[in-house]
Design a protein around this nucleic acid. Sequence first.
RNA 1: GCAGGCAUAGUUUAAUGGUUAGAAUAUAACCUUGCCAAGGUUAGGAUGCCGGUUCGAUUCCGGUUGCUUGCUCCA
Length: 451
Amino acid sequence: MLELVNFLKDMGYIYQGSEIYGGLANTWDFGPAGSLLKNNIKDAWIKRFIRIENNNVLLDSAILMNPKVWEASGHLSTFSDPLIDCKKCKSRYRADKLLEEASIDTTHMNNEDLVNSIKDNNILCPNCKSNDFTNIRNFNLMFKTFQGVTEEAKNEVYLRPETAQGIFTNFSNVQRSMRLKVPFGIGQIGKSFRNEITPGNFIFRVREFDQMELEYFCKPGTEIKYFNYYKDICKEFLLSLGLEEDKLRLRDHTKEELSFYSNATTDIEYLYPFGWGELWGIASRTNYDLTVHSKASNKELSYIDPLTNEKYIPYVIEPSVGVERLFLAILSSSYIKETLDDGTQRELLRLKPSLAPYKVTVLPLVKKYHEDKAKLIYKELSNNFMCLYDDTGSIGKRYRRSDAIGTPYVVTIDDETINNDIVTIRNRDTMKQESININKINEYIIKNINL
RNA sequence: GCAGGCAUAGUUUAAUGGUUAGAAUAUAACCUUGCCAAGGUUAGGAUGCCGGUUCGAUUCCGGUUGCUUGCUCCA
């Protein structure tokens, strides 16, 4: 993992956030190569879940929303933990967890009840066995900020902890303006923010992250069919991005584990360098979200079937994946240490060509003879792909550098190019070289890259 | 948030209470080279940050920040 982090920094993929000021915990910046890869991942998702699935559409809703949204969705109350500290040994616990461990039902308790119950039942600190606890402090996972010029409570707003609520609140707008018939889906890619207690594992758990969420609305009773359908295409999508089948597993949530609003949830997990971790959550959320928003806003959020005139609140299937987690999974599986014939090792990224930040590296075989022509070809190819130009060091070194950053093709310009317009193009995966006319380069690459 | 460990060029590292902190690799320039990390010359680049002890601190002490292992937690 540490090797990968260093390598990614070296290749311009990921740097630590605010590095020159000593960093800021768990923030990461995506460099030139990383930001291109991130965009390619998002493009691939849009292609598969919005373009190819014909009845799905895209949305880009605001990060800041009316606080009533979070009240209605339950995030203000249930998205927070009641934390208490032991005054003696400074250990920190969740008050409800402490009581539940003593088999006490906390379902309807507020903070005051929890404190009293801990006292009444003489619950001891599991660490030092004392019974001297602080009061409960609510730790809400949502970031709070202020809208407007004064920091008054009435202007409090939250950074969204998920993109989904922007979809639910726009359900009617989207359905009517695009004249959509159930079943249909609304997808969104955007930043979400969670003030996690314990972030870590590089970019796996961060406080600021990109989500790619789809809410697929369907008729009640058909949700399991679509739930299974999306489980399949999510997995198929991951395989198409180059993840290994034996590093993926589907894990169904048990009844106890299921969120209160869900009747089925499956996590697709990936075997990261640090172990198995959740990559993609696919949840059947019933009609919970639209129902609570309909009640809280006093707006009709149901759908009338145009054929049967049946009126219902649609059920929803939600496949939700974090871009950073997918990014890390893709890089983990493409990062390869290869031992060469002479015994030396090299590191490279064997990225799928469609995801590679740069598609072609253009090299003049000898700088002083071939530079002008090479630059001309580089400029021409840049009309169609992200390209890199490299004229420093030996030709072999430049081939290797191109491989390291994950570029699938190298075009080399030599005397043949100057005299006859013939270049050498080399494929990283097959290591095969071909001589082709400069007019055929575009065609050659498009043919081999599934854009 | 608690407890422990760690912190020297981009990376891997050496050394030291006292002269200019040494190397490898990477990077850049020039020469050479005509298809897979060749060679030569040269250049830039480091003791995380703040404070204390001391004539003098990268070294000792305290704090802080970051990383890391365990605990806690992850609707």
